[in-house]
């Protein structure tokens, strides 16, 4: 289980240090490296669960941090730094998935078949049948609903945090997650019959 201690004092202090140091021309590289090292695993985790393939995840993660580099000077602290990072990451995931479908002119079903094939090929799921079935069942959800599910179930984020990241109300998120859980449980149950 991936846990995120995003409200810890230490992390907030470090975020303030990053933002302060980044404002100085001679401190930008150092601040950026610290930011990447701090958030790389969490960003990768979110992205990889959405795009499935490691090479695709690597591309998206790099894009995320490049956008952070180019826009960090505009960040005004209206939200937590991690919220802003996660927002960029989730947007980039959804854009990537949308672009992939359009590039190959695939109907949604075919695009998901490609992702399902990547799940079957994933070495980390060898021998973990229930996880493999869960990941394939998640592909039946719309991308945004799958994203909410991942943020809640795997990343263990609170609804309030997910609401900030996605710009959706807590009530909508709870409904979306609840429906996703029911659908996934039904799909998994069907496979056991």
């Amino acid at each position: 289980m991936v846990t995120v201690a995003v409200s810890g004092t230490h992390l907030e202090d470090q975020d303030q240090y990053i933002l302060r140091t980044f404002k100085e021309p001679e401190g930008q590289q150092q601040a950026f490296q610290l930011l990447v090292r701090t958030y790389q695993e969490r960003i990768y985790s979110i992205v990889r669960k959405m795009v499935i393939d490691h090479d695709d995840a690597d591309d998206v993660v790099q894009e995320v941090f490049i956008k952070v580099w180019r826009n960090l000077h505009k960040f005004q602290g209206g939200s937590q730094l991690y919220t802003w990072l996660y927002r960029i990451a989730t947007n980039e995931c959804l854009r990537f998935l949308e672009k992939k479908k359009k590039r190959f002119f695939l109907p949604i079903g075919d695009a998901n078949q490609e992702l399902a094939a990547k799940i079957d090929q994933s070495p980390s799921l060898d021998g973990d049948e229930i996880q493999r079935r869960l990941q394939k069942a998640l592909l039946q959800l719309p991308d945004k609903q799958r994203l909410v599910f991942n943020l809640k179930y795997f990343e263990d984020l609170k609804y309030e945090a997910i609401a900030e990241i996605t710009g959706t109300s807590v009530g909508s998120l709870k409904a979306s997650y609840h429906l996703a859980v029911k659908k996934i449980e039904a799909l998994l149950q069907l496979e056991t019959i």
Binding site: Y44, K49, A57
Partner: peptide
């Protein structure tokens, strides 16, 4: 089941920062 289903390859994060820059 809540464990990370897709861990990163070993060593992936070691030079990610340099590759990005």
């Amino acid at each position: 089941l809540g464990n990370d289903p897709f861990p990163a390859p070993e060593g992936y994060f070691d030079d990610l920062s340099q590759r990005i820059q």
